[in-house]
Design a protein around this nucleic acid. Sequence first.
DNA 1: TCTCTATTGTTCAAATTTCAAGAAGGGTGC
DNA 2: GCACCCTTCTTGAAATTTGAACAATAGAGA
Lengths: 168, 168
Amino acid sequence: MKTPSAAEEPRWLTEEEQRTWLAYVHGTTLLDDHLDRQLQRDAGMPHLYYHLLVVLSGAPQRRLRMTELAMHTKITRSRLSHAIARLEKNGWVRREDCPSDKRGQFAVLTEGGFETLEKSAPGHVAAVRQALFDRLSPEQQKALGEIMEIIAEGLQPKEAGADLPWLR
Amino acid sequence: MKTPSAAEEPRWLTEEEQRTWLAYVHGTTLLDDHLDRQLQRDAGMPHLYYHLLVVLSGAPQRRLRMTELAMHTKITRSRLSHAIARLEKNGWVRREDCPSDKRGQFAVLTEGGFETLEKSAPGHVAAVRQALFDRLSPEQQKALGEIMEIIAEGLQPKEAGADLPWLR
DNA sequence: TCTCTATTGTTCAAATTTCAAGAAGGGTGC
DNA sequence: GCACCCTTCTTGAAATTTGAACAATAGAGA
């Protein structure tokens, strides 16, 4: 008979799981750092900020409500508020009031923001290629996509009350 | 004849590559956030700090030179200095002078730090399992480990002059 | 020994992120 | 209209991270 569930010995990671997890932490830490530096150097902003511009550039009329943008980028609205404020100072984004909801704000990619994006996109793509795609076989690329989609989906449960960053 | 290489059209990501990359960004962003919150709630520290304790606990005599610890965790010495200072305030780590190199410092896991680790480890492992391993097939786990090792290796070139965080 | 360069680790200030709180509008039921 | 709760977004302070500069020591070579 086993001990009560509250005192159950946790299922530790196997050695192979530990290796996998450590590789995950190392790989993501190094890649984050690498892209943040590359973009800070070549575009004057960290990766997240660059990604915000990318998402805006692909949205209808290059604009998105704050909460939607937070949702698309998987971050909190607070973090987004600060980030947009900074991008606004750079002249790369401007805010616009939402006509149908007086609480709402649009983040709009400016022409200057778009140009900055165009200038820095080649370097960024090259960095992602060099660090990631150029090193992986087609099978590994496919696997990585599937794996990351599973992880992302798992952390965004559909149920009400889920702890999602953009609802905090 | 093609245009000079400096003006070469960059190799943009294919649609599938874009999906993979977006999934990567989403998955890692959400998982980072998830673990930081879980550990902040249950152990009173972010994931990196927890990981520092883990690495120290596995080192000989539960101690490591600062630069070694930075190397093991893929971060800069500056970041590590701040982190260790905070962990020291918590009583989870202490510093010790290195007898053979007067510049050197050891970060040493204290008994209190070890106990904190023991208390929070089950919850952390459970979170990693739930978010990652429980959702992936054995093949996917294997693939993820291999992929992340490739990425990590690629970002740590052996050549002199490489831009490694712990040498900055 | 002396000099020059490299390594080690820290520090300050600026930038970013987190967290808790709050202002303001929307929407429902009465 | 009003009371109530929810959503939207922002704000300020604390925590963390980055980047540059620095002091101290190590190590190599003349």
